[in-house]
Nucleic acid binder design. Structure first.
Length: 425
RNA sequence: GGAGAGGUGGCCGAGUGGCUUAAGGCGGCGGUUUGCUAAACCGUUGUACGGCCAAAAGCUGUACCCAGGGUUCGAAUCCCUGCCUCUCCGCCA
C-alpha cells in the first residue's frame, strides 16, 4: 500500500506509474473522496470536542445537585448527529482504502519500462549451457524412467499438478533443502525460521496477496485459515505491528516451507512435469532493512540465491523485470533463471524483490533510530533461495547422461551419503 | 470437545458509569549530588490522524485500555459477538 498523503501529493506521478505498468487507473474519484472525507472528519471531531466538554459540565452540575436536563437533551441530539457523520466518514474511508490497496507499488527508477516479459533486461549470465552429444530428455521422461517421480499415482491420490517423489527422488528433494539451508545459515548469515504453513487473512493482507489475489490461494473451509503460497507470508509477518531497533537491522531470515498455489488461470501453462505444481517446497530468504540500504540488500540477497546455482554448477542468468512484468507489491525484482536443456531456455527459479515500505505500511512493520527517535517504516525484501522442485528439475535435466542416469553435483553428494549417480534400479 | 480464569501503556499492576488528564511501581531519558561506580533525590515519558504555523519548535483537536457492535448526555468500567492466552478434564502425533 502506498502512503495516503504521498498519493494525495503526487497524484500525477502515481498515474504515470500505473500507465507504465499497463494498468487501469483506480484513482478517478480519489481527490473528491479524500477531500470529502477530511471535511467530514473535521466536522465530527469539533462536535466531539464540544460533547466532551459538555459532558464534563453535566457531571459538575450533577455533583452540585443541580439538574441538567436541557444540556442532556442537547447532547442527545448532538450524539445522534455525530453518529451519522462518523458513519459517512467511515464509508468514505473504506472506499479510499480500498482504492489505495489496489494501487501497486511504484517501480524504482532503474526498472526498465515495458509491457511484458519480452521487455525484461538481462543483467548477467553465469556458466555455459552444456553441449549434449545426444538429445536431452525432459525431466518428466527421465524421472518416471528412473523410478524417482510418479505422476500417475499422484493423479490418483490428489489430482493434476501434483507429483509423488519416490526413493532417491524424495531424498534429492530433502538433500536440496538441507544444502540450501546450511549455505544460507552458515555462510550468508541468515537465521532459520520454521513457520506455520497455515496463516490468517491478516497476514496475507500484510504482504499484499489479499484482497486482490484470493483466487490464487487455497482457503481452508469454515475458518479464516489459508495455505501459504510462499514462506514470504508467515516470515514477513513475524514482526507485524512491532517496532524494531535500528541497530538490529538488517534482520535476515531463511525458511524452508511447503507452498500451495491454486494456479487458477494457468491452464495450459507448464502442464507437463513439476515446474508448476499446487504444492512445492521452497527455501525463502527474507530481509528487513533500513530504507537507505535496501537496494544494496537486494543485490546481496540476489547474490546469496545465485550462489546456490553456482555451487551446483547450474548455468543461469539474472533478469531485471520491466514495469509491465513487475509484481504488484514490488519496486524492483531480479529473476534468476536456470538453464533447462530440454526446452532450451532459461526458466525462473528465484524471484528477488525489494518492496521498499509497501508491505511495511500494510503490515505496520516499523523501526526506531536510537531511543527518542520517531518510528519509521522499514523496507522488506525477499527472494527464493531457491525453489526446490525447480532445482530438482534443473539437476536432473542438466546432469542427465546418454543412458538416462543422472550424475549428482559434487556439492550435493555429502547430503546424499556420497551418492554419485542416480541410476535405474 | 467440556469446565473455569483472564487480555489495561516498553514491562508489572490498580481501576464496578463523571473526582482518571489511566493511580502506583519498574524500565528508559534528562538533571542534581559524586574522584569513579552504586545509591538517593528532582523532572520527564506512547501511537495514529487532523488544525494553527512558510517550516520547525510549539500550541491545539480527535481516536486508541484485545477486536467489532450495543446501551448512555457520558464507557477502561455495563451488555452482545468474535479472537487470543492460561489452568483442569477428554481426545490425539
Amino acid at each position: 500500500m502506498l502512503d495516503l498523503s504521498f498519493v494525495r501529493e503526487n497524484l500525477e506521478q502515481v498515474r504515470q506509474m500505473l500507465r507504465d505498468r499497463g494498468l487501469p487507473d483506480p484513482l478517478a474519484a480519489f481527490e473528491e473522496l479524500d477531500r470529502e472525507r477530511r471535511k467530514l472528519l473535521t466536522e465530527a471531531e469539533s462536535r466531539k470536542a464540544r460533547r466532551n466538554k459538555v459532558s464534563d459540565e453535566i457531571a459538575a452540575l450533577k455533583k452540585q445537585g443541580q439538574g441538567a436536563s436541557a444540556l442532556i437533551q442537547e447532547m442527545k441530539q448532538a450524539s445522534a448527529e455525530i453518529k451519522g457523520l462518523d458513519e459517512e466518514a467511515r464509508n468514505l474511508d473504506v472506499q479510499l482504502r480500498a482504492a489505495l490497496r489496489l494501487i501497486p507499488n511504484l517501480p524504482h527508477e532503474s526498472v526498465p519500462i515495458g509491457r511484458g516479459s519480452g521487455d525484461n533486461r538481462e543483467i548477467r549470465r553465469w556458466g555455459e549451457p552444456r553441449q549434449f552429444d545426444f538429445e536431452p530428455k525432459p525431466h518428466w521422461d527421465l524421472g518416471p524412467a528412473l523410478g524417482i517421480l510418479d505422476f500417475d499415482r499422484a493423479a490418483k491420490i490428489s489430482g493434476a499438478r501434483f507429483a509423488v517423489y519416490t526413493g532417491v527422488g524424495a531424498e534429492l528433494e530433502r538433500a536440496l533443502a538441507n544444502f540450501m539451508l546450511d549455505l544460507h545459515t552458515r555462510e550468508h548469515g541468515y537465521t532459520e525460521v520454521l513457520p506455520p504453513f497455515i496463516v490468517n487473512s491478516a497476514s496475507l493482507t500484510g504482504t499484499g496477496q489479499l484482497p486482490k489475489f484470493a483466487q490464487d490461494l487455497f482457503k481452508l473451509e469454515n475458518s479464516d485459515f489459508w495455505l501459504i503460497p510462499t514462506a514470504e507470508v508467515p516470515v514477513t509477518n513475524l514482526y507485524r505491528d512491532e517496532v524494531l531497533e535500528a541497530q538490529t537491522l538488517p534482520v535476515k531470515h531463511c525458511a524452508w516451507t511447503a507452498c500451495f498455489r491454486s494456479e487458477a488461470g494457468s491452464y495450459g501453462k507448464d502442464t507437463r512435469g513439476i515446474i508448476r505444481q499446487h504444492q512445492f517446497q521452497k527455501v525463502e530468504l527474507v530481509k528487513f532493512s533500513l530504507p537507505e540500504t535496501s537496494y544494496d540488500e537486494l543485490e546481496s540477497l540476489t547474490r546469496d540465491a545465485a550462489v546456490v546455482l553456482e555451487r551446483l554448477k547450474l548455468p543461469y542468468r539474472v533478469v531485471s523485470l520491466c514495469t509491465g512484468d513487475l509484481g504488484f507489491s514490488s519496486a524492483k525484482t531480479y529473476d534468476l533463471e536456470v538453464w533447462l536443456p530440454s526446452s532450451r531456455e532459461y526458466k525462473e527459479i528465484s524471484s528477488c524483490s525489494n518492496f521498499e515500505a509497501f508491505q511495511a505500511r500494510r503490515a505496520n512493520l516499523r523501526f526506531r533510530r536510537g531511543k527518542g527517535g520517531k518510528t519509521e517504516f522499514l523496507h522488506t525484501l525477499n527472494g527464493s533461495g531457491l525453489a526446490i522442485g525447480r532445482t530438482w528439475v534443473a539437476i536432473v535435466e542438466n546432469y542427465q547422461q546418454a543412458d538416462g542416469s543422472v550424475v549428482i553435483p559434487d556439492a550435493l553428494r555429502p547430503y546424499l551419503r556420497g551418492l554419485e549417480k542416480i541410476t535405474r534400479r
